[in-house]
């Protein structure tokens, strides 16, 4: 498997993600510049955390107009792996590949800590190595991570089992404690927490590693 990590001006978790793929799951990975126009030869695309374009206008709003984005949309439509973490999640919602939006945390502060997440749906290519309802420890680092969507969208997310991760404790005021959602087809995942920062015990947790392992061996092992 060969994965692309897209590098926007202001991305700052690109090397963490690169390391998670190269050393964590030992797969081929390349950094791809935001000005590139092709993702030919890749099996999936990963959009890292950070502050693309300095979070100017709204988080992720400017990145949506970068040249590489047409290829990200193509990957999403072709059923290939698309994973957006933190700022990557914000970009995916701005793009409309995932519903809703991410806005300022309810209590006005940047949250930087390791939190408990619950795996809401383990029947996806991103989560098949987790137990149903497994509680995992993954760091968050965001000021604009409050997931918002209207009531009709929330119902749709529930009906289609698109809610993939929830916070055990609602740290930022997200609707329904949502930490990560997928598209209907479940090949596009966006999440605010950083699994790439939780791939080794020495980092405080290796609970994020199973997400990446699920990608290379997506057969659903655990019954729901």
């Amino acid at each position: 498997m060969k994965l692309a990590v897209v590098n926007f001006p202001g991305s700052n978790c690109d090397m963490d993600l690169f390391y998670a793929i190269r050393d964590g799951i030992k797969q081929a990975v390349e950094l791809v510049d935001y000005r590139a126009t092709s993702l030919k030869g890749f099996d999936g695309v990963l959009i890292p955390g950070g502050f693309s374009y300095g979070d100017y206008l709204r988080s992720g709003a400017i990145a949506v107009h970068a040249p590489i984005v047409k290829e990200i949309i193509r990957f999403a439509n072709e059923g290939k792996i698309v994973l957006g973490i933190c700022n990557g999640f914000q970009i995916l919602t701005e793009l409309g590949l995932l519903p809703g939006a991410l806005i300022q945390n309810e209590k006005s502060r940047f949250i930087c800590e390791t939190v408990d997440l619950e795996v809401e749906n383990n029947q996806t290519i991103f989560t098949s190595h987790y137990q149903p309802k497994e509680v995992i420890k993954v760091p968050v680092a965001h000021g604009e991570g409050r997931y918002y969507c209207d009531e009709a969208t929330l119902q749709e997310l529930k009906e289609n089992r698109q809610i993939i991760f929830k916070y055990k404790e609602n740290i930022n005021g997200s609707v329904d404690q949502i930490a990560g959602i997928a598209n209907k087809e479940k090949n596009v995942l966006g999440m605010m927490p950083h699994p790439e920062r939780a791939i080794e015990e020495i980092l405080g947790s290796d609970d994020g590693l199973k997400l990446f392992q699920s990608l290379i061996n997506p057969e659903v092992k655990v019954n729901d």
Binding site: R58, P99, A101, I103, Y148
Partner: peptide, 8 residues
Amino acid sequence: DLLANPNI
């Protein structure tokens, strides 16, 4: 398409 996000 840019200045406002119709979701919010």
